[in-house]
Design a protein around this nucleic acid. Sequence first.
DNA 1: CCCTGATTCGC
DNA 2: GCGAATCAGG
Length: 250
Amino acid sequence: MSWTDERIDQLKTMWEKGLTASQIAEELGGVSRNAVIGKAHRLGLKSRPSPVKPGEAKPKPAKKAEAPKPAKKVEAEAASDAPPFKVDAPAQPVRGAAPAPAPAPAPAPRPVEAADVADDADEGDLDAGADAVAAPKPQPRIVSVGPGGFLRQGPGDQQAPIPPAPPRRLVPARPSAEIADKTTLLDLTDRICRWPMGHPGEPDFHFCGQAVNPGFPYCVEHCGRAYQAQLPRGTRRPPPPMPFGGPRVR
DNA sequence: CCCTGATTCGC
DNA sequence: GCGAATCAGG
């Protein structure tokens, strides 16, 4: 694969979003993690917290030229000026060494909450060129809500899927009156909307039951929830309302 | 071991 | 310019 403009753009976006090089590489496909890192540096993207110390001298591995590596760690000391005895620590700190790097607190990705919706409401403008705007404010994740209240993740949002809660008790297919007139799993056909209502395991868990939007597994209304157009990058869409108050909190 | 990003350097 | 190899920290 080659670095097309589009792929470079994706790389920039994901890199600035804080995704790891591995995640970006996997998302783009056809490139390795190293390729992503290399490209990011070539593009001049700012480096991110790296495990390697930038301030310390980096021992140059001499030559790359397939030198035989007899010992794992060659303690080759710089024999030039080094005194014959071992010098443990430099007495003086390096001039100009930064005392405190003051690490920037990386905003952890968080699920969309009601507060985010309110916060976004007053940012009414479509920020088409939002990339240039300096907006370090943690941007809420753009997620849509899939059936059952599960969060559908956007590309690059690698996150372990929320395992469905196991039913707390076994219930017959039609245990009670509260489900008697509702659409259960057994009632589903190709012509019945199968959007879940409630949560699996609940005694009143059922399905929408409306007539489907022809060709789709859901009715027209729920198709609107399930299928959302891909908007151009840079545009933001208010998070869709959570069905039935969102994921259940235990 | 795994992960991470940084760097080098042959291509 | 590209990216595998390598390094080094967590």
